[in-house]
Design a binder for these strands. Structure first.
Lengths: 209, 209
DNA sequence: ATGTACACGTGAGGC
DNA sequence: TGCCTCACGTGTACA
């Protein structure tokens, strides 16, 4: 791994040799033999490491050093990428409660009812959205129930490429409904809380008309 | 990567050299120069690959070839292990419904009520268990409710190193209860359906006494 | 014959 | 000094 030796010294003639090596005898014969043996050992070690490396890389056809290094290179890159995506996925799908808690972001729909021209205020439900990674939790509290409201909300969420995983409806009294929806963003899709709230309001609005 | 050359040939004397190389001149000077250049190219390529590899391995202190190969070796092993565990985890936590369906195994508790000496038959609830990887689904239909039955069942499941993720109780009429429990086996623990059913029966039995 | 890949012994240089 | 690593040119084997 060092390029310190000069690059263009060929052994054309004997005087050149003398010129390049200032002191022709740098080692005693015995020292030279130690050197040879040490170098042999070093090469053997490297060779073993190459063999070990080649065994770790799957689908290796050529066994020459360059190919081993090249494919080991590719393999590490591939492993690292796969690990990265998997770990990201895991974070988003994590069921560990401590992560759930610390990541919760809560947004409450606050007004902006001007776009609902025909609907009275009490018909517009309270909508809460929590997003944690790819997971979405929607809570809707509405004072009246119309036929098809659940399917309408589901449809709105699916328009946003959300896969609905769970739906629960709690009726309180005759006309108060507490609806909880759990959903997950589809791969490569991302939505904001604003998107979700607006779409749900649209869906409910269309029900009334 | 070949060990075909003989292992113990040192250059002690000139006759030895002559003996080892049958035809002293095998290349014309021009051919020799091509050879030298080709070898240079090969070494350069290998060197580049070493450098590239060293950049892929994090936390590398020594940059000599042996260390690079050694640490690349370790790093690949580590990556592969981490990938393996992560992928297994993913399989178990998978929310994909098609996997859920094809993996479902259903077992129904069938009798063996002889060990419940004091309890009448109708007190022993119907218990169903589904296991899919690390996930466990328990359904209990019982005709009477006793104070503490939920906590008792939870306690039994936790004795088996199951983490309870969800509990739902549906009351039908005055005394029929449909209980659904979702749980997950803790890391490095594994239970059979038989284990679960027996423990739950024990828990219910102790409630009655 | 041509090209490719390897192991070898060796000198240089860094600690 | 010794020890270690490297790049080099070379001989050789294989396709």
């Amino acid at each position: 791994m060092n390029n310190s030796s000069d690059e263009n010294h060929f052994h054309f003639s004997e005087d050149e040799i003398v010129y390049n090596s200032r002191s022709p005898i740098r080692r005693t014969p015995i020292q030279a033999q130690y050197h040879v043996q040490a170098e042999r050992k070093r090469r053997e070690k490297l060779s073993d490491l190459f063999i070990a490396l080649s065994k770790l890389v799957p689908g290796l056809k050529k066994l020459d050093k360059a190919s081993v290094l090249e494919d080991a290179n590719k393999h590490i890159k591939e492993l690292q990428e796969r690990l990265k995506t998997l770990e990201e996925e895991k974070k988003n799908n994590s069921t560990a409660p401590e992560i759930m808690v610390e990541r919760c972001i809560i947004s409450t729909c606050s007004g902006n009812t001007s776009s609902f021209k025909g609907a009275t205020l009490e018909l517009i439900p309270e909508i809460k959205v929590k997003i944690q990674g790819k997971n979405v939790l929607v809570k809707i509290l509405c004072e009246k129930k119309y036929h098809g409201s659940i399917s309408s909300m589901s449809s709105e969420l699916e328009k946003l490429h959300l896969t609905i995983l769970d739906t629960r409806i709690l009726r309180f009294g005759c006309c108060t409904f507490d609806i909880t929806l759990k959903a997950q963003m589809d791969n490569e899709f991302s939505v904001t809380m604003k998107d979700i709230i607006e779409h749900l309001q649209q869906g409910i609005f269309q029900l009334h008309s």
